[in-house]
Simulated scan of single mutants.
Amino acid sequence: MQPFDNIVANSKVRGHLHRKEMVMFERLRRTITQRIAELENGSLFNLRDLLGDERPDGQGAARQLGRDFRANLHDFPDVADEGRDGENLRWYRKA
Rank of each mutant, 00 (worst) to 15 (best):
M1P: 07
Q2E: 14
Q2H: 12
Q2T: 15
Q2K: 14
P3T: 09
P3Q: 08
F4P: 00
F4H: 11
D5M: 06
V8H: 02
V8F: 05
A9G: 01
A9D: 12
N10L: 15
S11R: 15
V13P: 02
V13K: 13
V13A: 10
R14L: 13
R14N: 11
G15D: 14
L17V: 07
H18W: 15
H18N: 15
R19Y: 10
K20S: 07
E21H: 12
M24H: 09
M24W: 11
M24F: 07
E26T: 10
R27V: 05
L28K: 04
R29M: 07
R29Q: 10
R29P: 00
T31K: 14
T33K: 13
T33S: 13
Q34P: 02
I36L: 07
A37R: 13
A37C: 09
E38G: 13
E38A: 15
L39M: 04
E40L: 10
N41R: 09
G42L: 08
G42Y: 08
G42V: 05
S43A: 15
S43P: 03
S43G: 07
S43I: 11
S43Q: 12
L44T: 07
F45Q: 04
F45P: 04
N46L: 01
R48Y: 13
D49F: 10
L50I: 06
L50F: 04
L50N: 04
L51S: 01
L51M: 08
L51D: 03
G52T: 00
D53Q: 14
D53K: 12
R55F: 15
G60F: 07
G60S: 11
A61W: 09
A61V: 10
A61Q: 08
R63L: 09
L65P: 00
L65Y: 02
L65W: 02
L65V: 03
G66E: 06
G66H: 04
R67Q: 14
F69S: 02
F69V: 02
F69E: 01
R70K: 14
R70V: 06
A71G: 13
A71P: 02
A71C: 08
N72F: 02
N72Q: 08
N72K: 02
L73Q: 06
D75P: 00
D75Q: 15
D75A: 14
F76I: 05
F76K: 03
P77C: 07
V79E: 03
V79L: 04
V79D: 02
A80C: 10
A80D: 13
A80W: 03
D81L: 03
D81I: 01
D81E: 06
E82D: 15
G83S: 08
G83A: 06
G83F: 08
R84N: 11
D85T: 07
D85P: 03
E87Q: 15
E87H: 11
E87G: 10
N88I: 01
N88L: 01
L89S: 10
L89Y: 07
L89T: 14
R90L: 09
R90T: 04
W91C: 00
Y92L: 07
Y92V: 00
Y92P: 00
R93S: 02
R93T: 04
A95Y: 08
